[in-house]
Protein backbone atom coordinates (compact mmCIF):
# COMPACT_ATOMS: atom_id res chain seq x y z
CA UNK A 1 0.00 0.00 0.00
CA UNK A 2 2.81 2.32 0.99
CA UNK A 3 4.57 1.48 -2.19
CA UNK A 4 1.45 2.24 -4.17
CA UNK A 5 1.00 5.59 -2.45
CA UNK A 6 4.62 6.38 -3.16
CA UNK A 7 4.21 5.34 -6.73
CA UNK A 8 1.13 7.46 -7.27
CA UNK A 9 2.88 10.40 -5.63
CA UNK A 10 5.77 9.96 -8.03
CA UNK A 11 3.41 9.74 -10.91
CA UNK A 12 1.65 12.86 -9.77
CA UNK A 13 4.97 14.65 -9.66
CA UNK A 14 5.80 13.44 -13.11
CA UNK A 15 2.46 14.56 -14.37
CA UNK A 16 2.90 17.96 -12.78
CA UNK A 17 6.31 18.29 -14.37
CA UNK A 18 4.83 17.44 -17.75
CA UNK A 19 2.01 19.89 -17.25
CA UNK A 20 4.57 22.50 -16.28
CA UNK A 21 6.33 22.06 -19.58
CA UNK A 22 3.06 22.35 -21.42
CA UNK A 23 1.93 25.42 -19.58
CA UNK A 24 5.22 27.06 -20.21
CA UNK A 25 5.09 26.19 -23.82
CA UNK A 26 1.75 27.81 -24.10
CA UNK A 27 3.64 30.94 -23.21
CA UNK A 28 5.83 30.57 -26.24
CA UNK A 29 5.19 33.65 -28.19
CA UNK A 30 5.67 33.21 -31.84
CA UNK A 31 6.61 36.36 -33.62
CA UNK A 32 5.14 35.06 -36.82
CA UNK A 33 2.50 37.75 -37.05
CA UNK A 34 5.07 40.45 -37.51
CA UNK A 35 7.10 38.19 -39.72
CA UNK A 36 4.23 37.41 -42.04
CA UNK A 37 3.82 41.05 -42.81
CA UNK A 38 7.50 41.33 -43.41
CA UNK A 39 7.63 38.27 -45.59
CA UNK A 40 5.24 39.91 -47.95
CA UNK A 41 7.92 42.33 -48.86
CA UNK A 42 11.48 41.25 -48.34
CA UNK A 43 13.89 43.97 -49.15
CA UNK A 44 17.55 44.24 -48.58
CA UNK A 45 18.62 46.51 -45.80
CA UNK A 46 20.13 48.96 -48.20
CA UNK A 47 16.84 49.37 -49.99
CA UNK A 48 17.13 53.13 -50.15
CA UNK A 49 20.56 52.93 -51.64
CA UNK A 50 19.40 50.45 -54.25
CA UNK A 51 16.44 52.58 -55.17
CA UNK A 52 18.75 55.53 -55.57
CA UNK A 53 20.88 53.47 -57.95
CA UNK A 54 17.68 52.54 -59.66
CA UNK A 55 16.92 56.15 -60.39
CA UNK A 56 20.15 56.60 -62.30
CA UNK A 57 19.63 53.28 -64.06
CA UNK A 58 16.15 54.20 -65.14
CA UNK A 59 17.34 57.53 -66.39
CA UNK A 60 20.17 55.93 -68.34
CA UNK A 61 17.67 53.30 -69.48
CA UNK A 62 15.46 55.99 -70.88
CA UNK A 63 18.43 57.55 -72.60
CA UNK A 64 19.41 54.23 -74.02
CA UNK A 65 15.94 53.81 -75.31
CA UNK A 66 15.87 57.09 -77.18
CA UNK A 67 18.92 56.15 -79.15
CA UNK A 68 18.25 52.41 -78.92
CA UNK A 69 19.26 50.31 -81.86
CA UNK A 70 16.20 48.86 -83.57
CA UNK A 71 18.07 45.53 -83.73
CA UNK A 72 17.26 44.56 -80.07
CA UNK A 73 15.32 41.33 -80.28
CA UNK A 74 12.61 40.16 -77.91
CA UNK A 75 13.95 38.10 -75.03
CA UNK A 76 14.23 34.50 -76.24
CA UNK A 77 13.44 31.05 -74.87
CA UNK A 78 17.11 30.14 -74.48
CA UNK A 79 17.71 33.28 -72.42
CA UNK A 80 14.77 32.46 -70.19
CA UNK A 81 15.89 28.82 -69.92
CA UNK A 82 19.21 30.02 -68.59
CA UNK A 83 17.41 31.93 -65.83
CA UNK A 84 15.16 28.97 -65.13
CA UNK A 85 18.10 26.60 -64.74
CA UNK A 86 19.99 29.08 -62.61
CA UNK A 87 17.09 29.47 -60.18
CA UNK A 88 16.39 25.72 -60.19
CA UNK A 89 19.96 25.16 -59.02
CA UNK A 90 19.16 27.23 -55.91
CA UNK A 91 15.69 25.84 -55.19
CA UNK A 92 15.38 23.21 -52.48
CA UNK A 93 11.63 22.63 -52.21
CA UNK A 94 10.56 21.40 -48.78
CA UNK A 95 9.73 17.69 -48.39
CA UNK A 96 6.06 18.35 -47.70
CA UNK A 97 5.73 20.23 -50.99
CA UNK A 98 7.61 17.79 -53.24
CA UNK A 99 5.23 16.04 -55.59
CA UNK A 100 2.25 18.15 -54.51
CA UNK A 101 0.21 19.37 -57.46
CA UNK A 102 -1.46 22.28 -55.70
CA UNK A 103 1.49 23.95 -54.02
CA UNK A 104 2.75 26.23 -56.75
CA UNK A 105 4.21 29.41 -55.27
CA UNK A 106 4.34 32.65 -57.26
CA UNK A 107 7.13 35.07 -56.36
CA UNK A 108 7.05 38.60 -57.75
CA UNK A 109 10.53 39.92 -58.46
CA UNK A 110 11.95 43.31 -59.48
CA UNK A 111 15.41 43.38 -60.95
CA UNK A 112 18.20 45.82 -61.59
CA UNK A 113 19.93 46.02 -64.99
CA UNK A 114 22.76 43.83 -63.66
CA UNK A 115 20.18 41.14 -62.86
CA UNK A 116 20.30 41.59 -59.10
CA UNK A 117 17.07 41.22 -57.18
CA UNK A 118 15.84 44.44 -55.54
CA UNK A 119 12.53 43.09 -54.43
CA UNK A 120 11.04 39.64 -54.05
CA UNK A 121 7.64 39.07 -52.59
CA UNK A 122 5.22 36.20 -52.11
CA UNK A 123 2.11 36.90 -54.20
CA UNK A 124 -0.47 34.83 -52.32
CA UNK A 125 -0.12 36.31 -48.86
CA UNK A 126 -3.49 35.00 -47.72
CA UNK A 127 -2.43 31.42 -48.26
CA UNK A 128 0.97 32.20 -46.75
CA UNK A 129 -0.72 33.32 -43.55
CA UNK A 130 -3.17 30.43 -43.44
CA UNK A 131 -1.21 27.33 -44.41
CA UNK A 132 1.93 25.92 -42.79
CA UNK A 133 2.98 23.82 -45.77
CA UNK A 134 2.46 26.70 -48.19
CA UNK A 135 4.48 28.95 -45.90
CA UNK A 136 7.44 26.55 -45.92
CA UNK A 137 7.15 26.20 -49.70
CA UNK A 138 6.92 29.97 -50.19
CA UNK A 139 9.90 30.65 -47.91
CA UNK A 140 11.97 28.09 -49.85
CA UNK A 141 10.95 29.72 -53.15
CA UNK A 142 11.85 33.15 -51.81
CA UNK A 143 15.24 31.85 -50.67
CA UNK A 144 15.83 30.41 -54.14
CA UNK A 145 15.23 33.78 -55.82
CA UNK A 146 17.37 35.71 -53.33
CA UNK A 147 20.13 33.12 -53.47
CA UNK A 148 20.07 33.18 -57.29
CA UNK A 149 20.63 36.95 -57.42
CA UNK A 150 22.00 38.29 -59.76
CA UNK A 151 20.05 36.51 -62.48
CA UNK A 152 21.88 35.88 -65.76
CA UNK A 153 19.94 38.13 -68.15
CA UNK A 154 21.02 40.23 -71.15
CA UNK A 155 21.48 43.80 -69.96
CA UNK A 156 20.52 45.29 -73.34
CA UNK A 157 17.03 43.85 -72.98
CA UNK A 158 16.47 45.16 -69.45
CA UNK A 159 13.31 46.96 -70.50
CA UNK A 160 11.76 43.58 -71.17
CA UNK A 161 12.73 41.78 -67.99
CA UNK A 162 12.75 44.26 -65.15
CA UNK A 163 9.83 42.45 -63.52
CA UNK A 164 9.16 38.72 -63.24
CA UNK A 165 6.70 36.41 -61.66
CA UNK A 166 8.44 33.11 -61.00
CA UNK A 167 6.06 30.19 -60.45
CA UNK A 168 7.70 27.49 -58.32
CA UNK A 169 5.86 24.29 -59.13
CA UNK A 170 6.98 21.24 -57.10
CA UNK A 171 4.64 18.68 -58.68
CA UNK A 172 7.35 16.92 -60.70
CA UNK A 173 9.84 16.79 -57.86
CA UNK A 174 10.13 13.57 -55.93
CA UNK A 175 11.69 13.50 -52.54
Amino acid sequence: MNELAQQSQQDKKREEAANGVLQNLAKIQKTKEAEKKQAQKVKKQDAQQKVATNVSNVISGVQQKTDAKPSIEPIGISELDRVRMHIASKWNPPPAAAGADKLKVDIYVRLEPDGSVTEASIVDTKRYDANKTYRAAANAALRAVLDASPLPLPREKYDQWREFIFGFDPRFISR
Binding site: K50, W91, P93, D159, E163, F166, G167, I173
Partner: peptide, 28 residues
Protein backbone atom coordinates in the same frame (compact mmCIF):
# COMPACT_ATOMS: atom_id res chain seq x y z
CA UNK B 1 11.95 51.94 -50.22
CA UNK B 2 8.40 51.21 -51.30
CA UNK B 3 7.42 54.86 -51.24
CA UNK B 4 10.42 55.77 -53.37
CA UNK B 5 9.71 53.08 -55.90
CA UNK B 6 6.10 54.19 -56.18
CA UNK B 7 7.33 57.63 -57.08
CA UNK B 8 9.69 56.09 -59.57
CA UNK B 9 7.01 54.06 -61.28
CA UNK B 10 5.78 57.26 -62.87
CA UNK B 11 8.97 57.42 -64.88
CA UNK B 12 9.05 53.78 -65.91
CA UNK B 13 8.62 53.09 -69.61
CA UNK B 14 4.98 52.33 -70.34
CA UNK B 15 5.71 49.06 -72.15
CA UNK B 16 7.55 47.39 -69.24
CA UNK B 17 5.68 44.20 -68.46
CA UNK B 18 5.91 41.39 -65.95
CA UNK B 19 7.33 38.19 -67.41
CA UNK B 20 6.13 34.82 -66.15
CA UNK B 21 8.50 31.92 -65.78
CA UNK B 22 7.74 28.57 -64.15
CA UNK B 23 10.42 26.68 -62.24
CA UNK B 24 9.60 22.97 -62.26
CA UNK B 25 12.87 21.37 -61.20
CA UNK B 26 14.97 21.90 -58.11
CA UNK B 27 17.54 20.41 -55.79
CA UNK B 28 16.59 17.66 -53.40
Amino acid sequence: GLALSMLLSVFLPAHAQTLRLDITSGQV
